Amino acid sequence: MSRSQLLLVGGLASDVARETAESAMHEVEGAVLVHHDLRSLTEGIVRRTVRTAEDVRETVLELAHGCASCTLREDVLPLLRRLARNRVPRIVLHLDPAMEPESVCGALSTLLVEDEDGPGTVCEVLDIAAVLVVIDPENWFRRATGDETLVEMGLGAGTEDERTVAHVATGAVAFADVLVLARSADPQTLAVLDRLAPAAVRTTGREVGQLLERLPAEARRGEADDPHGPLLRGTPPLHAEHGIVLTEFDARRPLHPKRFAEAMEVLLDGVVTAWGRIWLASKPEASLWLESAGGALWLGYLGPWLCAAPDEWEQAAPLRSATAALRWDPYYGDREQHLLVLVHEADPERITEALNGALLTDAELAEGQDGWRALPDPFQLFEDEPCGSQS
C-alpha cells in the first residue's frame, strides 16, 4: 500500500487557509485534516481539531510549558505519525499562523517520535506532497514590509516570541511550493512574489489537486535549502518592476565588524527582505547567515568555512563541496560575502556602496588574521555562544 501523503497549508490569511485546507481534505476519500489552534498558548492551552468528511473531533490540550515547539513535539508529530501508520491516504496539516512551514518541515524530518515500532521521524512513514501558503494580497505587502511583531498582532506563540510578522510572511512565501492568493493581487505584490518565490506555482482557486499533479520535479516539497548552496530556487526577474528589484552583493574580502554593524541599516530601510552568507574579519573561521525582514535583522552561525576546517570536506554535502571547489580562492578559500536584497523603496546602489564600505581596506587586509581578530567587534555573542544569533 502506498504511503500517506502530507499536505501543509499555512499563511497569515487564516480564514482562506482553513477553506483551502478543507477543500484539500474533501478532494481525497478518507483524508484527515489536522489543526492546532495556538491562540491560548500563553495559558498553556492548545485546541486540536481532527476533521474528516464525516466527523469533527475537538480536544483541549494542556501543556506544562506552553510553546509552539512543545506543541509540535508533544502532539503534532506523534499524531501525524499515528495517522500515517493507519494508512490515511491524505493528511492535511492546517498550520496555525504562528507555526512556520519551514520549521515544521524540519521537525518532520529530524525529530524522533516514539511509538510501538520504536523511535522514528514522521517523514519515515509519509511523504510531504507540497507546502501551500495562503496570502491575502490586500494586506500582505503592508505586513511584509512593516515592523509589527506577531505578539502585537495577537498571533505570537508565547509572550517571548520576538518574531516580526514580516519575517513570518516572507519566510513562508519563500518556502512555498504553491501560493494560494485570496484575491487578485496588485502589480507591486506580484513583483515581490515573482522575485521571492519564482519557482512557486500560483493560484487564486481553493482546489489544489490538479496543481499538485503539475508541480515540477524540482519543487522542494518540504526540503530545506542548503545555506551554503544557491540562495534562491528558480529564475527570478532581474529588472526593476513597480519599484521592486532584487539586488545581489558578492565580495570575497571580510567585513570590518564595527563598520558592518553601522552599515546594516541599509538592509532594513526600504527593503522587503535580505538573506545570505557573510564572514566577519574578527571571526575568520565562522560562516554566518544573515536574514532581515520587517525592521529586524538576524545573524546565525552556520559552522566553520571549509578552508578553516579541512576535516569538514568529507562531511560536507556534495553541492557545498562542489560549489566551494568551483569558487575557491587561493587566499580566501571558500569564504565569501553573498547576499540577496529584495528592495521596494531603497536605492540598490546605496546598499552596494554601504556594504563595500564595510569591507576591509587594503591596509587592514595586509594586517592578516591576527590583526583582524583585534578589531572592535560588537558581535561578541558568537565567541561565547557559537549557535546564537544577534538581532
Rank of each mutant, 00 (worst) to 15 (best):
L211M: 07
R3Y: 15
S184Y: 09
A24N: 03
T189N: 14
L12P: 03
S23A: 15
A309V: 01
L365N: 04
A322W: 09
L211Q: 07
R320L: 10
W298S: 14
D115Y: 08
D250N: 06
L12Y: 08
M264C: 02
V272P: 02
P187R: 05
V122K: 00
T71G: 14
A84W: 06
P284L: 07
H167T: 15
F141C: 08
A31P: 15
V16A: 10
P330T: 09
D370W: 10
T121H: 01
T49V: 14
E22D: 12
V271D: 03
E364P: 07
L381R: 12
D37H: 03
T52N: 14
I244M: 03
L232C: 00
A374R: 13
A261I: 00
E262Q: 11
L360R: 08
N86P: 01
L339S: 02
V28L: 07
R350M: 13
V16R: 12
R206N: 01
L38I: 08
V88C: 10
R350G: 06
E124L: 06
V88Y: 14
P137W: 00
F379M: 02
P78V: 08
R206V: 14
F249R: 09
P97H: 11
M99K: 03
L95S: 00
E312V: 05
Y331I: 14
T121E: 06
F379V: 00
E248K: 15
P348A: 09
R220H: 11
A13V: 05
H228K: 05
E364K: 04
H344V: 01
T189P: 13
R90N: 09
G300I: 02
R220F: 02
L375R: 02
V343T: 04
G11L: 07
P257A: 01
V341Y: 08
T59H: 11
M99V: 13
L155N: 04
E54C: 12
V92C: 13
L95M: 09
G357N: 13
E312Q: 09
L61W: 13
T59V: 15
L267H: 05
E349F: 08
L6T: 01
C307S: 15
E314K: 11
Q390V: 14
D194C: 07
F141K: 07
V266P: 00
P230L: 14
D334N: 11
A251N: 10
L38H: 12
L93S: 01
A374M: 15
P348Q: 13
H256D: 14
M99Q: 11
L381M: 11
G10H: 02
L255R: 05
W275S: 15
D117S: 15
L375N: 08
A240D: 11
C387V: 03
L83N: 13
I91C: 08
G243F: 13
W279Q: 04
P378G: 03
L79E: 12
L93R: 00
H36V: 06
Q188L: 09
W289C: 04
L299T: 05
D15V: 06
G158S: 07
